[in-house]
Design a binder for these strands. Structure first.
Lengths: 343, 343
DNA sequence: CGCGCAAAAGGTAGCGCTACCATTTTTTAC
DNA sequence: GTAAAAAATGGTAGCGCTACCTTTTGCGCG
């Protein structure tokens, strides 16, 4: 009585090898390192594979070789434009390499992040990219147990899990606000949404720049944990103006809010920057083409994603970067919305 | 002479089983269908797994069971806001199910799409979601060979590979343009970028609506294959006005262009809609908060992603929807930017 | 109190590939 | 021409899990 498990019906490597007249292991080498074969066998395996329409079974490969060709990526949001640039860098850099990207969305929840990390653990990714530096202790433990290169992105800070690519949100915000002050603005408001750790650090930069100039006033601050949006920028400006009608400038936690603030100014017939200066954060594409063009802090998001993948790939191949923490910096893009104040 | 392959060092199911005092297969069942165990063993396996920190090996599972718990998703762009909404729907709907999403970016290239489909084939995904209805013959062949539920999204059309969720871009554009005409606009321009198949069908709707009213004029059309952006909207309007200075309305292939057009109008001190009506496409969030609020065609992008996953998951479980093609329709959101023209 | 049947648990044999070593063939050096 | 080194190829034995079937256990009932 023969008891057989259903075969998948797919072509297997063995069949390719048989048709090519080589051993299975030689055929296997062809797919992983063709240069290791002599030209004649290489040719034969190639044509046999093509003839049979062979597709390698990744699960079997992963099981036998104890590794996968997957890089896990954890980001907090798919909606936020900021991350689409980072992702573009990530996907661009992964292309051409034999690694593929496995994306997961934490929705700004560090608990969700913890769960997703455990999920990734089961997949034994070859590398990992996580957003930010505020993981739970549990998450860090999982990451340390994962035994693969890991890059934290978006920020730099002390004590990296492994590698880091980002910039200082505090410094960037500090620079942006510090630029407004000598332009003659004094009642500089802060509007922020989402208030994830990075926005909080931007707030820190704002606060300290204001304090340094003795301009800090809690009435100038409007924040909400609600997810950011352009519309929200308008409401937050309305709130701000009701608390502090003499506000003469706004530093926005991100560019969406800044655009919403601009629209709200237009609705109120406040001219920018005469009645209200506006500074955003991230320098999304629309900031330069708005009317008037809006000042913002350019962050190297695409590059952040690209470098993170490049560093992880290099580390997989054993070429760790000499310095595990890379600060990509930022540039203050000064535009019409923060011109010096007319006396 | 013992020749041993290096073990992974991870806890295996066998070890969990041993600690729990059950057979490996019983432990295996615990992770796939806990109800099949008696409460006492269930309890013992659970605590053993926890004690050892067991993490199942997905590659081994996939190999043994001949299936994965992955749904492949092919989209043409990560930058375009439109897809971030679709993705959000996809990720939201997949959450809670035991399936994970594998995303790949075709960059609007049907050849890249073909390649990526072959890559997916090697992973034997449990389901597949692809964007659009314009795959190559080769791509269709691969999809048909994949033997898993497939949903085409963003559009509806004849001859689905399997299932479809979308709407008619032609109808939506036709409706948008047809709404402008009775408002008194006659020289209605079309600006389009990227010009992927969906934008081309929108153009078709514009063209036919204009022809139906005997208003069609090729000088009113400005398109470019360049990827879309807000800034580009401004340049395209500039082009349009140099070709047809008497243009009194613009139908934009998407909302980014529409916002760019609005900014360009502001720069030229053209008032909207008095001097220039503007209609966009997709109804991104900023359309309603712009000044003036911009008319657009709302498309159910989040829902598209959500339904696609839901349909695929149902099909995996054998519950195919009665009707394989779902038209989610669209809504014309009429706002100030296309108010009736003053005589 | 044993019988029959369903539910629960177990044994065995792969899934398709690659690591590890051994062997054969080719190239190089002298 | 031969020895040594290098390159190419092959054989064997799993990787960790689950499908498939068999065996055991629990339990209601005549």
């Amino acid at each position: 009585m023969e008891r057989k498990r259903a075969k998948s019906g797919e072509i297997r490597l063995t069949e390719v090898a048989k048709l090519a007249g080589v051993s299975p292991i030689t055929a296997s080498r062809f797919f992983r390192n063709p240069e290791a074969l002599s030209p004649s066998k290489r040719e034969r395996v190639a044509s046999a594979a093509k003839e049979l329409g062979y597709v390698p079974n990744l699960a079997a490969r992963a099981l036998a070789s104890q590794r996968t060709e997957v890089i896990g990526v954890l980001i907090p949001s798919l909606t936020n434009n900021v991350f689409s640039d980072v992702l573009r860098g990530i996907y661009d850099a992964s292309e051409g390499s034999r690694y593929s990207i496995q994306l997961a969305n934490t929705r700004y929840s560090i608990l969700q992040e913890e769960q997703l990390l455990r999920l990734f653990q089961a997949q034994k990714p070859a590398g990992l990219i996580v957003t930010g530096i505020d993981q739970t202790a549990e998450s860090r433990a999982v990451m340390e147990a994962m035994n693969c290169p890991i890059a934290q992105i978006m920020e730099v800070g002390p004590d990296p899990v492994d590698m880091m690519v980002g910039f200082s949100h505090y410094d960037a915000a500090f620079a942006a606000v510090s630029h407004l002050i000598p332009q003659g603005y004094q009642r500089i408001g802060f509007v922020g949404a989402q208030m994830d750790p990075r926005v909080q650090r931007r707030f820190g930069g704002y606060r300290d720049a204001m304090k340094a100039a003795s301009l800090f006033d809690p009435r100038l601050i409007v924040t909400t944990p609600v997810p950011t949006s352009i519309t929200l920028g308008g409401s937050l400006l309305a709130d701000l103006l009701s608390k502090a009608p003499d506000t003469d400038a706004v530093f926005c936690g991100n560019d969406d809010l800044a655009l919403g603030v601009l629209f709200e100014c237009q609705r109120r017939h406040l001219s920018v920057p005469e009645d209200m200066a506006i500074v955003g954060f991230n320098d999304l594409e629309f900031m330069a083409s708005a009317v008037p063009p809006l000042t913002s802090v350019r962050t190297n998001r695409y590059e952040m994603g690209r470098s993170a993948v490049t560093m992880v790939l290099a580390a997989i191949d054993g070429n760790r970067p000499p310095e595990p923490v890379v600060d990509l910096g930022f540039q203050l893009m000064v535009r019409e919305s923060s011109l010096p104040r007319r006396a």
